[in-house]
Design a protein around this nucleic acid. Sequence first.
RNA 1: GCGCCCGUAGCUCAGCUGGAUAGAGCGAUUGCCUCCGGAGCAAUAGGUCGGGAGUUCGAAUCUCUCCGGGCGCACCA
Length: 674
Amino acid sequence: MYLREQKKLEERLRAVLRNLYQIEPENLVIEQPPEIKFGEYALPVAFELARKLRRAPRKIAEELVSALGSVEGFAGFEVAGAGYINARLDRGAAMQEIAASSELETSSEHLHSLVEHTSINPNKAAHVGHLRNAILGDTFVRLLRAAGQKVDVQNYIDNTGVQVADIVVGLMHLEGLSLSGVQALMARLSDAGERIDFYCWDLYARASQWYEADPSQKEARKKIRLDTLHAIEQGGNDAAQIGELISTAVLRRHLETMLRLDIEYDFLPRESEILRLHFWESAFEQLKAKGVLYFETDGKNKGCWVMKRGTGRTGNALRDEAVDDLEEPAASDGPDEDAKVIVRSNGTVTYVGKDIAYHLWKFGLLGRDFGYRRFFEYPDRECWISAESSEDDHPHFGEAQAIYNVIDSRQADPQANVIEALRGLGYSEQAAHYTHFSYEMVALTPRCALELGYEVSEEDQGRPYIEVSGRKGFGVKADDLIDKLIAATQQEVDERHPERDAGKREQIAKEIAVGALRYFMLKYTRNSVIAFDFKDALSFEGETGPYIQYAVVRTRSIFRKGETTPEQALADVAGVDAAPYLAGEDADSIWQLWLRAAKTSLLLEQCIATAEPAYLARHAFQLAQDFSNFYRRHHILTEGDPAKKKLLLATAAVAQRELIRSLSRLGISAPEVM
RNA sequence: GCGCCCGUAGCUCAGCUGGAUAGAGCGAUUGCCUCCGGAGCAAUAGGUCGGGAGUUCGAAUCUCUCCGGGCGCACCA
């Protein structure tokens, strides 16, 4: 509603500007006034015109107001301050429209998008940082789907990299296990109900330390590491099989962990298939043919295939389509030492090279495809994994029009390299729809680190936060955090609802725990580092998920006691002349709620345009705040005036509708009771 | 050396394409359950928006510069 009226207002204003001044502004700013008493829209356009027309802004504003005349849906326009034009909606009519229109207003393109998120190395348990990644990614997927896009969700699995190699080294050289020994170990862990990813968490830290532990052995151990890595890449040996066993088991655990937060995937592309299906060879041909790569014959990169780096573009810009190719820097003499190595002098491909091939595949530009095999069952969908050959009835992924890579900000450079390569190949359309959905890391506060029993140096204690490290085994495991949250919510629920059966209480506790965790990860904007602390994460009061869920629970309670339904309440308000109840000081708390509810579509659009889910999280919270405020001031069920009572019930209904809608896009459920 | 991010209330953070008295949560102080669930509501205190300069009718927001903090700039993945 809000968005539609805004567009109507904008069109009308443009017509007026054309008629009056023959002006066609590129973008017309329409703001939301700071206070509700100023109306619903504010237009600072007169200030802009003042300069061009060399006249007082207030005069211009007055002229515009009289030219605007009356617009359907609007109660009127007025000049305020030094030259603002404030627009007021016809509250009664707007209310009716909001009550009646439950569908979504959306103007964004209906693209086929691909979102990659999670992508944890399958060699250890997921930690809080991975949770931020997965929650951001999953939420964004929900936003795109809400806007009508077809979205594939991918979780990239680096199952042949050094991190998996480190675990294999740990198993073979620290634990002295053979392939059968590893199989026995896995069976033992499974029987004991122990989480293999937790086992690997410790082993990975030990292995990482082992490399450095003995200076005299350092070189030899580094060689073991490298040999193991190569063996895994090669395949067809024990190391590779151990790597496959462990990484697959850990991957399964990651999927289980994420499923606890209602996070699902469609496809798990693995590096092993990128290698064995020769994705790189195809990419290499293209890159050479288009001159994106060239063979360096001199300097430090002699014997490598390299790519020149971008000219001033940042991988951080969401869509730098506006950046047209500037002229090439003058070809100076000698080798470009700053070029990015893609193929090493020994003929092997770097990570960026493989990533270029993978991203060509994502856009359907590679000319090769993965094989597909079933891997994991969700209640309502299947998750597929890459394979060298396909099962019957397999789906097909890739060929997306737009892609989003949820990857932390430290990888901005390699991401920019891939975009650069796409552009170099002439795929500028695809490059423009390539978004590095970047976010800052989750670190621990020194206090949190101490609580967990880690040693914290004097220097670190003085810092605002300490980076987690898988190599050191330093961090908060995702499952531990979820367990802790559930324990805390369980206790609350048990106290509040001792009469309910245990299964129901457990269900409610889980929903609240998930709500708390997801909201916690979403309320910070992407480029803010989260300094993690149990105190904040385990909070259920104030700006938290449970606060919002509680608002919904209250609305449910109203309809239960009032023996009606939200749908009925919304239907009943049709035809009621609510205007008298929507004006005046006391009515602002009612109108505020309707207005906010009308803005959900606007927020969705903003979130997608800026790739920032935090805005919707905030919106949901503000909606809950508006409702709590309204709830206190207006006693619905005892209202004596029948017309007003209908309005109040409808207000609760629309609040519930928009709260549930917003929460579901955040991946948070709204329990019946809590 | 080059690039990116951050610096706003005691703490943690919002502040959208420049706009009306700079907001929220937590913490502090103080009120509010004969009334739809207090995981709540209301009020008070608390800010040279890191410093400086510039652009502008107007700057927390844009530009430059300096200070402080973080992260990238491998023939590692």
